[in-house]
Write a protein that binds this DNA or RNA. Sequence first.
DNA 1: GAAACATCCGAAATGCTTTTCGGTACGGTA
DNA 2: TACCGTACCGAAAAGCATTTCGGATGTTTC
Lengths: 350, 350
Amino acid sequence: MAEREAGGSTGRAATLSDVAKLAGVSIATASKAINGRDQVAPATRQRVMAAAEQISFTPNELARGLINGRTGTVGLLTSDLEGRFVIPILMGAEDAFGAGQVNVFLCDARGDAIREQHHLKALLTRRVDGIIVVGRQTDPRPSLGHDIPVPVVYAYAPSDDPTDISITPDNRAGGRLAVEHLLSCGRRRIALISGDPAFAAAQDRAVGVREALTDAGLELVGSPMYSDWSEHWGRDASAMLLRQYPDVDGIVCGSDQIARGALDTLRDLGRDVPGDVAVIGYDNWEILATNSRPGLTTIDANLQQLGRVAATRIFDALDGAGGAGSTEVTGGTEHLPVRLVIRGSTIPRR
Amino acid sequence: MAEREAGGSTGRAATLSDVAKLAGVSIATASKAINGRDQVAPATRQRVMAAAEQISFTPNELARGLINGRTGTVGLLTSDLEGRFVIPILMGAEDAFGAGQVNVFLCDARGDAIREQHHLKALLTRRVDGIIVVGRQTDPRPSLGHDIPVPVVYAYAPSDDPTDISITPDNRAGGRLAVEHLLSCGRRRIALISGDPAFAAAQDRAVGVREALTDAGLELVGSPMYSDWSEHWGRDASAMLLRQYPDVDGIVCGSDQIARGALDTLRDLGRDVPGDVAVIGYDNWEILATNSRPGLTTIDANLQQLGRVAATRIFDALDGAGGAGSTEVTGGTEHLPVRLVIRGSTIPRR
DNA sequence: GAAACATCCGAAATGCTTTTCGGTACGGTA
DNA sequence: TACCGTACCGAAAAGCATTTCGGATGTTTC
């Protein structure tokens, strides 16, 4: 009886000893042959490789991880329900090394601290090489603490503990970039509509906006308008803005959603974009930015790059800790540059 | 010298033998005590647990997986760049068993078959218990084949091989549901604006729409309008529609994006929604559906449920294959029910 | 007081790969 | 012919947890 191989879908995976037996060598030799170590005669290597191919042998990464202490896996801990931030960051982390070198466990804690602890424990149990914590705001979040046996990197949302390693987009530079672009489009009467003022993102971007205006010898039209990050607010705020300052010719929006709302209102009021008023958003949320009329110029946070850097920091920390050279991985918050994406809402197209 | 424990961030993780030594028992006893097996005196168990707690021991899941052949991990293979489908499916898969029981490797192939193969190989190497393949369309996709040593389930996009296990939302039922809802709102002159007719989703939903209308003794106003899934098309199509059939009182849209475009045009033309015309979308893409004016009634594909079912099928297949009972896991495409989400675009609010 | 029995614990094998180190065979040298 | 070096190969341990089975207690019963 034993077990049938019928479906092929159940056959126990081939092991190295199967390969060795088939090739007529010892397990040790098979291992060396497959992993390209020397100490193996070319003919023998050939034979082993052929055998491995024949029974489609793939080394068991579990056993491998057991030995060398590295699993080549990383845990991504998030509460980003939309996946808006986490997916690009994940792709970046995958890319940091060759494709398939590193695999990522994605864990969604759904904003629940208990669930986050569960996931954390599960990840440690699986011996991930490191953990990337992704928040959905750029406000500092509580640190996971320092009694974790693997490196932890905080991405997007920095840790509130300055000795942790954090990587976050440079919102201030983003604010500057937005204004500088509007200025280069010849705009001089620029207003700011942003989201919830309790968010660091709102504050930081506003600082950048102000700096750039000051540098140009200008001032903001009216005071910055804060409420929430929604399209509704974008619509309402821009209506108010235009009633009070009809000669505004540029609007910096704190998010693409707000910008969408602003575009809506401008249309309703018969203002031409970008002819009368140029509008710039923030986030480069494709679904919003590319479908608006006109397309939305916006600031992209380079999240993929952010993921790449985060993964790199983890393995830097590992190598630093293990090696004798002690490449001292220092904590602190690293601000990554952002990028301007130009579409029709600031520069006429076609 | 040896190595310092200073930071605490480098200390080699505790092993079972550390616990055993500390508790003054053998490794075997420590294992039994921690895993709640009997054959251990209560007092001994206490002692072991305390020791484990003290040095914060977590069992090495790699070693565990090596023994019992199950790793408790699942690979999620996708090309869904947006993460719009894959995130809910992932959450469902995580939920299928208790939190932290199953961890998911998320791999983004970016639409590249080569990269997909790389990821597939990497996942097998890591001895995942199964693989969920998530497409971004409901059109059948090429099967990964049958020479994979673990169960494979195709989610959202079914496999083109009918002997594979596929799980996909019931688009036809969705189409019916949309029309039935409009009918229940008293609409009788209903039109359909959908996306790319080459997509199965477009066709299936249209079939459902027609069926429901026929059942009610009605016909579609005009012929179904197909082009792409964008807001632009939604705007243009609805403008054309209203020019030709000014008395339309209900529009079924093939996606939320199209519906957004339609809402835009209706506004521009001074039609009241839902007073004059009711609009219903498809997908329940929150960012679009909740921010429109009015909020968009739409069909939700229950993706989280889909992920849950997919994960369940994998472990069913595993148990079926291993067990003697042979719970015969048959292939085929399973259509999961969808759900109506009512907002202001069909029923006046407030 | 001796035999039968239940209880609890530990040595050792298992799963799979890597690595070290000792061993074999062969060609060449004195 | 006796010896040495080289090039290959293999036995065995290590890495960690689980499980089986035999052994060591202590308890009950006749």
